[in-house]
Design a protein around this nucleic acid. Structure first.
Lengths: 246, 246
DNA sequence: GAGTGGTCTAGACCACGCT
DNA sequence: GCGTGGTCTAGACCACTCT
């Protein structure tokens, strides 16, 4: 552990970026876990030998990226994946009336097997590496609406899916964070329209060939490591995918 | 015109928010059109009787919302809708290889008629108000890929669609900006999977019932006024909708 | 009252683009 | 060389939370 600050070296870019990098490291290496109260701006400034304004700029940056959360009068905390956050940040399906609904999930199977070529490539694993595959359906407003297939690197989730382990929670990202210390910070999604397979149709109670919205998501940790590949096929009769941009 | 600054009144929230609001007004009322070089931070600070840091914070905010663009050594400019910006900010369809492609558009019809109820509601118009409806198809990599229907309030686009007017350009948002002084700043989209109609199928060269990605977009100006309602039905065989979030 | 983040100021120096 | 934004500092006061 380098207890010495390395913020004195020039040529490493702006000071506040170095501070930002240092804070990011402390978060992603687990020194400051989710929910942790980090030192005050004054303390950090003294510790690092910079002004409060410089620390503030670094913190501003991380707050706008949803990595830190400020609470006036209390302090600054590492962001946490409560159900609300997971719902608002990582679940883009919304009722046609605009209401957000918490999905109900039912796991069909959890298996440990070897990655397909495309899965290994997306997750940055060796060909044939061990993965966990979760198959489940999700209800929205008590209607079966989503068929989901999730692939995780087995090495990062040691116990998951072994016989006798507890049932899967509704929001997996909370599980990743609490049980495995893995926090999802960003994700990229690809959307396509596909025809329902016989299996999709059976699970969703629709006719084969009906149009479904297919979402392929690659989720990453703070430092960019991909940790989850998820394919969701969604019925969009009473719900839709919500997106907005500036 | 109030040439007098009203930044002295307390109880109106933080100073930098008042500055931000004032800058926003000057942009959205046309005093500072797209591409305009705005006064330097120092000048603005003097003019408004605040410190440079306060102006800077307001400008920071508008830059992060893509309203202003800074160029070190040159100044700060009102953001402009060149083709590149339109493509990167407002066209989320990407080739399956990850390459962005500029679509080729062919207008089928441009008509002036009365708004349907749902259209009037979305655009905030009176029932039965006059609108312009544009129907077109768009090619991606020389393949017919998108069938699009666009509805605009006729009152805001006086000449458009009248007989003898020039052909529509590829990127409409440039036209809105250059010809009508209307700049699109944000948009909300709803995505669904739908089955191709007979018309869709004919235009795209596919069989009826094939799954299409339907994107319903409501585009707004800086001050939030909705100005365009667009429904795009996209073939997602070689392309997909790209989305990412933190 | 003590400690925290939130706002605001005044001034310094650097990096960049223009002329 | 001058004016621009980009970074950094030091210090002030306010609003909020907790004890």
């Amino acid at each position: 552990m380098d207890t010495q600050n390395t913020l004195t070296t020039p040529g490493e870019g702006p000071l506040y970026m170095q501070v930002r990098k240092l804070l990011t490291q402390r978060i992603s290496n687990g020194a400051w876990p989710p929910g942790h109260l980090i030192p005050s701006e004054i303390k950090l400034a003294q510790e690092l030998g910079v002004s409060q304004g410089t620390v503030r700029k670094a913190v501003d940056d991380l707050v706008s990226n949803n990595v830190l959360v400020r609470h006036q009068g209390k302090g600054t905390f590492v962001a946490i994946h409560d159900t609300r956050r997971a719902l608002f940040h990582f679940f883009p399906m919304v009722g046609d009336d605009g209401q957000r609904v918490l999905p109900d999930s039912r796991a069909l199977s959890v298996r440990r097997l070897r990655a397909k070529k495309s899965e290994a490539q997306a997750l940055g694993l060796q060909a044939g590496a061990r993965v966990i595959r979760i198959e489940r359906t999700r209800d929205l407003n008590d209607q079966p609406t989503i068929v989901e297939s999730i692939v995780l690197p087995a090495a990062s989730f040691p116990e998951l899916g072994k016989s006798g382990s507890e049932p899967l929670p509704n929001t997996l990202y909370e599980l990743y964070e609490e049980r495995y210390g893995i926090t999802i910070h960003r994700a990229e999604e690809q959307l396509r329209a596909v025809a329902a397979s016989a299996r999709d149709a059976k699970l969703l109670g629709i006719e084969p060939g009906a149009p479904l919205l297919e979402i392929t998501r690659l989720a990453r940790t703070l430092n960019g490591t991909p940790v989850e590949l998820r394919v969701s096929r969604c019925l969009t009769r009473a719900h839709h995918y919500q997106s907005s941009f500036v």
